[in-house]
Design a protein around this nucleic acid. Structure first.
Lengths: 213, 213, 213, 213
DNA sequence: GATGAATGAGACTTCATTCAT
DNA sequence: TATGAATGAAGTCTCATTCAT
C-alpha cells in the first residue's frame, strides 16, 4: 500500500471522524432506538472501526449523550434564529413556532432521537433534555412576560403557561411524526391559535371555573 | 407453617398468578424501561418462576403488550366513568380531565409504561396505544361537537381540536411526572382554561393570523 | 361431575393407558426426532397428563426405550410369521424379505423411530436395537446354513453374509422411506436378486479377487 | 512466554480459527450427537470463545451444515482419487470401495457426523447429504454402464443398482463402526464379492423369480 | 387414579467492550 | 492512527420433571 493510498482512505483529522461517527449514530439510534442499536451498526454506517468510536467518543452511553447534545444545540439555535426580537410578541411566537416545526420536519431523525429515545431512557440522558427544555421555556417566558406585565397577569403564571406551551409543541411535533401529511405551517398555525387565543383570554381575565363542585 | 411458606407452596389458580405477574411487569417495565427490564426481575418481583411467565403470558413482547392493554383499558374506564353525560359540556370536560389526571397521579407506573415506554418502542406496541388514543379522541370529539354545532364551527375542525387536546393532556401528564409537587387539580385547571377559552375563541370566530409574512 | 361422567373420561385400566401413551410417543418421536419431541406433546397427543406418563413409563429415556422395544418386537414377529419353514430356502428368504418391507411400508413411523432415531442416539438405546439385529441375523443365518452346508461353504462365512444382508435390507428400507413411489414388492425383488445370485455365486465357488494389486 | 500463553494471546487469522472450530465441532457432534452437543463444549474443545463461533460460522445449525459440507467434500474427493479411470471396471470399483472404507476407517468421527447424525436430523441437513449421495451414485453408474452396455443390460437398471450398491456401502460402513475388529480390506472385499458376482449374474441374465406365489 | 401448577437447570445467542498488531 | 480478533457477561426462552390437590 503506497503512502498515497493510505492517505486517501485513512488518517482523517479527528474532527472529521467525530462528525462521521455522530451522523451515523444519530441515524442508527433514530432507526432502531437506543437499545436495539448496536455499536457494530454504528461503526458500519460510519465507515469507521469500533475501537475508533470508543477512542473518540467513549462508551455507548457517552455516544448517545453526545448525539443528544449536538442535536439539542442545533434545534435551539434554529428556534432562536427564528425569533427576531424587533418584532411584536405575537409575531415572535409565530416565527419561533414556525422555525421549530420546520426544523423538526427537516430533521425527523434528530427529533426522534431527541424526544422519543432520550425521554424513554431514564437517568443520565434526561439531564441534557431537561436543560434544553429549561432554555426553551425561558425563551417563551420572557416573551409572554412582555405582554402579560403590560396587562395584569402575575409572574409565575407565565412560566407555567410557557411550560404548557413548550410541552404542547413537543407533543404536537411528536404526533406530527406519525401524521406527516399535514404541512408544517398548518401544524404551527393550529398551536398558535390555541395558545394565543387562550393566553389572550387569560390576560384579559376571561377564565373558566367549575360552576359547582 | 408460616405465611411465607404458604405463599411458596400454595398452588394458586391461573387467574390469580396472571394478575400477580402483570402487576410485577408493570412495575418493572415502568422502573427500568422495556429493554432494561429483565424477565428475571419480573419473575423475582412477581414471586413466580420464569417458566410460569412464559407459560401464562408468552414472550417478553407479549407480556409488555398485555401490560399496555390492561392499563389502557383501566385508564379509559376511569376517564369514561368521570364523564357524566347529564352535565353541561364544560363540566363534562372538566370532570373528564379531572379523572384523567387523578388516575395518572394515582398510577404513575401505569402511565409511565403506557406513554413513555410504549411510545418509544416501534411497531407492534403502538397499535394498542393508537387504539386507546382513538377512543379518547372520539370521546372528546362527541363532546365538542355538541357545543360547536350549536354555534358555527364545522365538523372536522372539532376532531383536530380534540386530537390537540388529547395530545396536550398526554404531554402535560408526562411533564407532571417530572414535576410532582403541583396538585392534580391545578394541572387539570391549567389545561381546562387553555382549552376552554381557546376553544371558545374559535367557536366565536376570534382567530389569530399572521399580520404580515 | 357425576360418577357416570367421571367414569366416561377417566379411570381407564393401566394397560389401556400404557398403549395410548406408547402410540402417541411413537408418533411424536417419529415426527420430530427424539430430542425435538417434548413430553408435553406426547401428553397432548396421548390425551393423558404428564404425571401419568411418568408414573406408568418413567423418564423420557425410558419411554423411548419402551417404544423401541415394542416396535422391534412387532417387526420381528411379522418377519418370523412370513418365513414358513416348510418351504424351500429361497422362498423362505423371499417371503421374509416381503414381510419385512411390507411391515416397514405399513408402519413408516415405527421404522423411523426404530432405525433412524434409535441409531443416532448413542448408548442405552442401541442395546435394544443390537439385540433385534442379532435375532434377525440369526434368523437369516439358519436359513443360509441349510443351503450352504449342503454345498461347500464354511460356517462363519454365512454369518457375515447374513449380517451384510440384514444391513442391506435396513439400508434399503431407509432409502425407501425417502423414495416412497417404488412398490414394496419391487424393493424386495431388487434385494432378493442381488442377494440370491451373489450368494449362489459364492456357494458355487465363483468369487472375485483383485487381478493384481 | 510459554506456548500456552502464546496460544491464548495470539490473534490468529480467520481462516485458521475457522478450521480449528470446524475440527472441534466435528468431534463434538460425533461424540454426543447434534442435539446433545452444546456450543459451550465446541468452544471449549476449539479453544475459542463462543462469540467467535457465532461470528465466523453462524448458528448451531449453520455450524453443523458446515461440518457436513466439509466432510462430505473430503470423502468424495478421497473416493474419486481412488478410482483411476485407466484400469478395467472391476478394478476401478475395487479401488473405489477400498478408498471409501479406508477413509471411513481413518475418519470415524467424520463418518459418524456425516451419516448417523445428518441422517437423523430432518430437512435442511439432508440436502448436503443427498447431494453427495447423488454424486456417488453417478460415479458408480458410469462405471457399471461401461460393462453393462457391452453386454445386454439396459440403461436405468444400472442406476438403481448403483443406488443399491451405494446404500449397501453406507450401511456396511455404519455396521463396521460398531464392529471395528474386521480389517478394512475384508469389509471391502465382502461387499465387492456380493456386488460383482450379483451384478455379473444380472448381466448374464441369471435372475431369480419366485417359483410360485 | 389423575392433573394443573410449578420450577431448576441449561441451551442458544448477542453485545459492549478491549487487546495485539 | 487504525483495525481485525477476541471475549465476559447477560438475556430470552425451553424442557424434563415433580408437587399439592
Amino acid at each position: 500500500m503506497t503512502v498515497e493510498e493510505r492517505r486517501r482512505v485513512k488518517r482523517l483529522p479527528r474532527e472529521v471522524r467525530e462528525r462521521q461517527i455522530l451522523d451515523a449514530a444519530v441515524r442508527v439510534f433514530s432507526d432502531h432506538g437506543y437499545h436495539n442499536a448496536s455499536m457494530d451498526e454504528v461503526s458500519d454506517v460510519a465507515g469507521v472501526s469500533k475501537p475508533m468510536i470508543y477512542a473518540y467518543l467513549g462508551s455507548k452511553e457517552d455516544l448517545f449523550a453526545a448525539c443528544i447534545h449536538r442535536e439539542a444545540t442545533q434545534l435551539l439555535a434554529a428556534v432562536a434564529a427564528g425569533v427576531r426580537t424587533e418584532l411584536p410578541a405575537d409575531m415572535q411566537l409565530w416565527h419561533g413556532l414556525g422555525a421549530f416545526f420546520e426544523y423538526v420536519g427537516a430533521h425527523r431523525e434528530s427529533w426522534r432521537v431527541l424526544h422519543r429515545q432520550a425521554i424513554s431512557q431514564g437517568g443520565p440522558f434526561s439531564e441534557e433534555l431537561l436543560d434544553m427544555r429549561r432554555q426553551a421555556i425561558s425563551l417563551v417566558d420572557t416573551l409572554l412576560v412582555r405582554v402579560a406585565t403590560k396587562e395584569g397577569l402575575g409572574r409565575g403564571a407565565t412560566e407555567s403557561l410557557a411550560a404548557a406551551l413548550v410541552g404542547a409543541a413537543e407533543s404536537l411535533a411528536d404526533w406530527w411524526l406519525d401524521n406527516p401529511d399535514v404541512p408544517s405551517r398548518a401544524v404551527a398555525s393550529r398551536l398558535m391559535n390555541l395558545a394565543w387565543i387562550g393566553f389572550g383570554g387569560l390576560v384579559d381575565g376571561r377564565t373558566w371555573h367549575p360552576s359547582a363542585d
